[in-house]
C-alpha cells in the first residue's frame, strides 16, 4: 500500500503501473467528446484547452468554462504578452511550454476594487518590480490581486487562467464547443 511507502520511487525509464502518464500539448491533443444517448450535447459545453489555445490569436483569453461570474480562460502565449491586472487574485496553470511571469507592484491600484476580471495595459505600469517566476508544464502561479503581470514564453505555451469574467474574456462557445 502506498501509505506504508516511505520514499518516492526513483524516476526511471520503467513504465509506471497502468502505463506512462500522458499530458496534452499544442502539438498533440487528441480529444474525446460527448456521445449522446438522450440529451443535448450542448449542455456539456465540451471543448479542449489546447485546441482552443491553438485556434485563437496569441493571448486571446477564451472562456472554456463558466460558472456564473467565474471563468476558466485558455490562451496561447506567443511572444511577450501585454500587461494585465485584476482587483482579485487570479491563478494561471501552465498546460504546455514554459513561461516567465513578470510581476510588478503598481504605484497605485490599476483597477477599481469592485471590478471583475483582468484589465489589459499596453505599456509597462508604473511601479516597482515584485520579481519573476519561471514556470513549466503543470506549474500553477498566483497572480496576486492588484499586481500587474505579463508572460514571456520560451517558445509557445498554453495557459489556463482561473479568474472572473471581465473585459478580456472572449466568449466563442459556438466556435470551440461540440454542438452535435
Amino acid at each position: 500500500m502506498s501509505s506504508t511507502q516511505l520514499t518516492s520511487p526513483p524516476q526511471t525509464a520503467i513504465v509506471p503501473p497502468g502505463g506512462p502518464t500522458t499530458f496534452g500539448s499544442l502539438a498533440h491533443h487528441p480529444s474525446g467528446g460527448v456521445q449522446v444517448i438522450d440529451d443535448d450535447p450542448r449542455h456539456y459545453v465540451f471543448s479542449n484547452v489546447f485546441a482552443v489555445a491553438k485556434a485563437g490569436a496569441p493571448y486571446l483569453r477564451t472562456a472554456v468554462a463558466i460558472n456564473q461570474e467565474y471563468v476558466l480562460e485558455a490562451t496561447r502565449a506567443e511572444g511577450p504578452s501585454p500587461w494585465w491586472s485584476a482587483a482579485h487574485d487570479e491563478f494561471v496553470l501552465v498546460m504546455d511550454g514554459r513561461v516567465t511571469v513578470w510581476l510588478r507592484k503598481p504605484t497605485a491600484p490599476l483597477v477599481e476594487p469592485d471590478h471583475d476580471g483582468a484589465v489589459v495595459f499596453t505599456a509597462e505600469p508604473e511601479g516597482v518590480p515584485m520579481g519573476t517566476i519561471e514556470a513549466g508544464r503543470g506549474h500553477m502561479v498566483l497572480l496576486p490581486a492588484h499586481s500587474a503581470y505579463r508572460f514571456v514564453p520560451e517558445t509557445s505555451a498554453v495557459l489556463l487562467f482561473q479568474t472572473v469574467a471581465g473585459p478580456q474574456t472572449e466568449f466563442r462557445w459556438n466556435e470551440i464547443c461540440q454542438t452535435s
Binding site: 520511487p9 503501473p17 516597482v128 520579481g131 519561471e134 514556470a135 496576486p144
Partner: peptide, 24 residues
C-alpha cells in the same frame, strides 16, 4: 503510477519585500 511525472518546481525570484506574494 505517477513515477514518471516531473518533480521540478517553478523558479521564483522575488524582489526584497515580495517573497510572500510570489507563490507558485
Amino acid at each position: 503510477a505517477f513515477s514518471d511525472v516531473p518533480q521540478d518546481e517553478p523558479v521564483v525570484r522575488a524582489e526584497a519585500g515580495f517573497a510572500d506574494e510570489l507563490v507558485a
